[in-house]
Design a protein around this nucleic acid. Structure first.
Length: 1071
RNA sequence: GGGCCAAUAGCUCAAUCAGGUUGAGCGCCACUCUGAUAAGGUGGAGGCUCUCGGUUCAAAUCCGAGUUGGCCCA
């Protein structure tokens, strides 16, 4: 890249990106950029580790693009930003993938294969996936420390988890206990409630009658899990609910049934009773203590039979108006609520189901059967014993394992918990210490989640995870006398075996064999591993290699910023808060930017089964990485989901193409004139700056100001919008148009140098502002503009500061008015049928506003030039231009309060009235003619609008929707105007012929001109000099196009035939 | 079943906090211009502002109930 060198005619993202990747390697751009900021103020960003299974999808790509744009922005602001990427590599998802690859079906297969081999296979798989992800992230230009990612499977990271957990244990927040948990019977492990995915399935729906023992009648319960009936321990009612006793008759037999009042009709219908009668009304309270027979007493001999079992109790989870019968079958060995209530009642837990979902010996007749398979037999047994009131199926949502999709079961097992409910208040306080974007995510969503969060079950009965560092006395597995090891160092000191803390791997296969002997007691490790969410929960110190590295932790912790999607409310945002609070007493992050999910073009979730996934690779393929990033960064990140849109990608490519064209436009001229930005700085050229230069520089300042504010508020979408508007609207559509002629000028001039200096400054700062968003194209443009003069990479530049001396809000406002006038003028011209090429004698601007009038006065010449008018006349706000009609425009905000219900009617009348002079009296008269009842009109209710008179075209103009006045274009013709008009027509056609001959801009020509109309011919003759100069012709002469490779063409201009011929002149021909 | 968020032109969004005749960009159609141009300019078509109620002189906006989508929880 040499300064102002030749660049691609067309913006070609792929070739460009390839060049930039190579260039970055060549100059070590990333390393240099980091080094450049090494002495800056620290900014601790923590990467939320993506899980290493599968490739980067659009959501991850959005996430990493957001991280990249803020890291780059912060660096440009001078911060030394931490940028260590992380990967979450443990856990069940990887285990199941590996099991699939190896063709395993359950844990027994793993045990046979060998734990250590299985762990190795998981490691290998996770590493492979990591490589793929890294390549994906690099492919769209994310700059993070790819050579040194933190991995949750490395010993130093696992140690960070041990350390955090041991801190929680020191505070007495680690506990072992029976809990009702969601169990995946295939994976044979507990899974967290939030790992349960709900799906609609068809399940049994049975109504069962339990015979009362101390009175006549039966209580009726409903369940969708017949397999939990063996463990039935009690029935729960709503103490304050209304219940009824119903005498019901079917097939000649009569029975007394108790159900909730609200449900009795439905229940009896289910049971197909022929007739029934409500014979008793009672409250739930009256039923407390009733006892009943276990319906499967014979089949399950060991069924709960202790003191207090098989009786009716109050339960706050009962709803007499919900599903079921208002009496709830309760089995503390299964359901979570049942378990809690059973514990309150002091009942022992009866759970006849093993971790694999198969009935144990306690299951009696059903021993050895998988619970779901036993449903059928249980239903049959209940029917045989006459306990079944009704048996059918129901479609409802039921929990499934998030990884293997097996239906989960609720069973009670021994698990390890961090009892975060003991520090709930502290958690809620700590939430307030973090700042969230958007804030509602913290105050509503996150706050509610934290408030309701149960104790954290951190144990999993699996292999690929961080082993829980708890050693218990041999033969016991409770939390009394447990030892919690916090570091590798401590491990080496305490275990009986010889262990090198430097080299030990902390996985299960290694640590399971280690024992601790203290005071004559031998301790062994509990076999469980951590819930994978615990891994990433310690990322804020794990990424700093703490506790091994104390210095960095002291310097940096807690994190300044984390950026993740809204599903992490229950995930990483939560797990970090929980772990940070229990281990450190603090929330480990200060700022959270929460973004949404990437949805498909129709607003639906991208999913394999729907087949609507858009791969980031495809977007890059079609439009390039810069364009994809621009799109991803142009959508609101704060909490909202994003809809992917190919149309928007195209729009972004158009914007970049415009930037590219703006950038390459001045290059040939700069080369030709050997413009040197060091010699001709903006300050040097200050005296020669023209109004448009000053204006575009002022716009640049306000663009920088807006962008900085928006980026600091984490609205990179608005910052980008401001930048692209500046590039497309201000630089391309206005400045470049206005400045072109100055650059075509062959003579060296102060004005031309000022234009160069201006556009150089604008481009250089623009690409710097663009660099965090589109790092590739920004790099190439920067390189071409600076060459040896700048940094090796644009990403080392400082974030451009506002130059106060160039700020000019007045000028920005003036030009906004002028542009509005120009736009309206073009409209009026079109109405009058006069092209812009043809001058008009006069344009009249009727200003509504002093500021507009002042702007027109200040910039009369510029306006005349842009409108191609000989003269621009101003009509001041308090004056009127003759020959105008007027109409009124009603102001509803005044009319409404004044007229109430009639306001609409009055508005219409006012809008439709037409008057000759803009006075209130004549308007009121005209309006009242249209109204049934006269209305009294006041000054504030209306504003007058001028109406176009005959012969002159007028168009209203305004900025931001406010009317500012009207532009009138007088399109009458004079000889002088026709002369110039025709000359311009000729010039344009000669230019087109030059282009068709592919002549260089500066190449000179000879021109032959014959006009088939004497009057027009003489009009054109008057502008001979103008034509020669504009088309770079040395002379009018007869030319021989065949001999000199010229070009001859017939044209029709405004009904007149004109024949033009040109030939290029060689240097020797030139006079 | 519950919580949070969203719904406005074909598309992306603004206007909603603080009620006052719905807007921009892109796309489409027609015309036009062209010495950076896959560009530029002008005009046009395109809206029961998701639905139904309520408050108000006046609702895209406030309130209530729904529908659809997204995330979370059960």
């Amino acid at each position: 890249m040499s300064r102002f060198g030749e660049v691609d005619d067309q913006y070609d993202p792929h070739a460009l990106e390839e060049r930039v990747f190579e260039y970055w390697d060549e100059v070590d751009a990333y390393e240099q950029t980091k080094q450049h900021r090494a002495d800056g103020e620290s900014y601790f960003f923590v990467d939320g580790p993506p899980y290493t299974s599968g490739a980067a999808h659009m959501g991850t790509t959005w996430n990493k693009s957001l991280k990249d744009v803020y890291i780059r922005f912060l660096r440009m602001q001078g911060y030394d930003v931490t940028d260590r990427p992380g990967y979450d590599m443990h856990g069940l998802p990887i285990e199941t993938k590996v099991e699939e690859q190896l063709g395993f079906e359950n844990k027994k297969d793993i045990e046979e294969f060998g734990e250590d081999e299985f762990i190795d296979a998981c490691k290998e798989y996770a590493d492979e996936q990591l490589e793929g992800l890294q390549e994906d992230f690099k492919s769209f230009g994310v700059w993070m420390d790819w050579d040194d990612p933190y991995k949750t499977v490395e010993p130093e990271y696992m140690e960070a988890a041990w350390w955090g957990f041991s801190k929680a244990a020191e505070r007495g927040l680690v506990e072992q206990g029976h809990r009702s948990i969601s169990q995946c019977p295939r994976c044979e492990t507990a899974i967290a409630n939030n790992e349960v995915e709900y799906e609609d399935v068809e399940d049994p729906s049975i109504y069962v009658k339990f015979d009362l023992t101390d009175r006549e009648g039966k209580v009726v319960i409903w369940t969708t899990t017949p397999w939990t009936v063996p463990a039935n321990t009690f029935v729960a009612v709503d103490e304050e609910g209304d219940y009824v006793g119903v005498r019901a008759e079917k097939e000649g037999e009569e029975e007394l049934l108790y159900v909730a009042e609200a449900k009795h009709e439905e229940v009896l219908k289910e049971g197909r009773y022929e007739d029934y009668e409500v014979v008793e009304e009672l409250s739930g309270e009256e039923m407390l203590g009733w006892s009943y027979d276990h319906p499967l007493a014979e089949e399950v001999p060991e069924h709960p039979d202790h003191e207090g079992a098989r009786e009716v109790y109050a339960g706050d989870y009962v709803d007499t108006h919900g599903d079921g019968t208002g009496l709830v079958h309760s089995a503390p060995g299964h359901g979570e609520e049942d378990f809690e209530r059973g514990r309150e009642l002091g009942f022992p837990v009866f759970c006849p189901v093993g971790s694999d979902g198969v009935y144990t010996e306690e299951g009696g007749k059903y021993e050895g059967q998988f619970v779901k398979d036993a449903d059928e037999e249980i239903i049959a047994d209940l029917e045989d014993s006459g306990a079944m009131l009704s048996s059918g199926t129901v479609s409802h949502s039921y929990g499934h394992c998030w990884r293997c999709d097996t239906g989960i079961i609720q069973i009670v097992t021994d698990q390890w918990f961090i009892t975060i409910t003991d520090v709930k208040d502290e958690l809620l306080e700590n939430v307030e210490d973090s700042q969230w974007y958007p804030q509602w995510a913290r105050d509503n969503r996150f706050h509610d989640f934290v408030e309701d969060a149960p104790d954290w079950n951190v144990s999993r009965q699996r292999y690929w995870g961080i082993p829980i560092p708890i050693w218990t006395p041999e033969g016991r597995d409770d939390d009394e006398d447990m030892i919690v090891v916090s570091t590798r160092e401590e491990l080496a000191e305490r275990v009986d075996q010889d262990v090198d803390p430097e080299t030990i791997d902390l996985h299960k296969d290694t640590v399971d064999d280690l024992t601790i002997t203290e005071d004559g007691t031998t301790y062994t490790r509990i076999p469980d591993v951590f819930d994978v969410w615990l891994d990433s929960s310690v990322a804020s110190w794990g990424t700093l290699n703490f506790p091994e590295d104390q210095r960095r932790f002291d310097e940096l912790w807690p994190a300044d910023l984390i950026i993740e999607a809204h599903d992490q409310t229950r995930g990483w945002f939560w797990s970090q808060l929980g772990m940070g609070t229990t281990a450190m007493g603090e929330v480990p992050y200060e700022r959270v930017l929460m973004h949404g999910w990437a949805l498909d073009e129709d607003g639906r979730k991208m999913s394999k089964s729907v087949g609507n996934i858009v791969q980031p690779g495809e977007a890059i393929e079609r439009h390039g990485a810069d364009v994809m990033r621009l799109f991803l960064l142009s959508v609101n990140p704060q909490g909202d989901d994003m809809r992917f849109s190919w149309d928007e990608l195209r729009n972004m490519e158009n914007s970049l193409r415009t930037l590219w064209n703006v950038f390459r436009f001045p290059l040939p001229y700069m080369r030709l004139d050997e413009f040197d930005p060091d010699e001709t700085t903006l300050d040097d050229a200050d005296d020669h700056l023209e109004l448009v230069d000053e204006w575009v520089l002022a716009r640049l300042q306000s663009t920088k100001e807006t962008m900085t504010e928006e980026l600091e508020a984490f609205r990179q979408d608005r910052a980008l919008e401001a930048l692209l508007e500046f590039v497309v609207e201000d630089v391309s559509r206005f400045y470049v148009q206005a400045v072109r002629e100055r650059m075509w000028d062959e003579e060296d001039s102060g004005s031309k140098r000022a234009a160069y200096a201006t556009i150089y400054r604008v481009l250089r700062e623009t690409v710097t502002l663009l660099a965090p968003y589109a790092p590739f194209v920004a790099e190439e443009i920067y390189g071409t503009l600076t060459d040896e003069d700048g940094y090796d990479t644009v990403h080392m530049e400082d974030w451009p500061a506002v130059d106060d001396s160039r700020v000019d809000e007045q000028l920005e406002e003036d030009v906004a008015f002028l542009r509005a006038i120009e736009e309206a003028g073009a409209n009026a011209r079109q109405q009058a049928g006069r092209k812009l090429r043809w001058p008009v004698p006069r344009v009249v601007v009727a200003a509504d506003d002093e500021r507009v009038a002042a702007a027109v006065e200040r910039h009369n010449d510029l306006l005349a030039d842009r409108l191609n008018a000989r003269e621009v006349e101003l009509v001041d706000p308090d004056e009127r231009w003759g020959e105008l009609n007027y109409s009124a425009e009603a102001d509803m905000s005044v009319l409404g309060p004044a007229f109430g219900g009639r306001a609409g009617e009055v508005m219409t009348a006012l809008n439709e009235a037409r008057i000759d002079d803009p006075t209130l009296e004549s308007l009121e008269t005209a309006a009242n003619e249209l109204l049934d009842e006269p209305a009294e009109i006041t000054d504030e209710m209306v504003s007058f609008v001028t109406e176009t008179p005959e012969g002159v075209a007028g168009t209203a103009f305004g900025t931001d929707g406010d009317d500012c006045g009207v532009v009138y274009v007088d399109a009458s013709l004079t000889d002088d105007i026709e002369s110039e008009g025709y000359a311009r027509e000729v010039i344009r056609r000669v230019q087109e012929m030059r282009k068709e001959l592919d002549l260089d801009v500066e190449e000179r020509i000879a021109l032959e001109l014959s006009v088939d109309d004497d009057r027009v011919a003489s009009l054109i003759d008057e502008r001979e000099a103008l034509i020669l100069e504009e088309v770079r012709a040395d002379e009018f002469s007869t030319v021989d196009v065949d001999e000199r490779d010229g070009h001859r063409k017939e044209w029709e201009v405004e009904g007149v035939d004109i024949e033009l011929a040109i030939v290029p002149l060689t240097t020797s021909d030139t006079v």
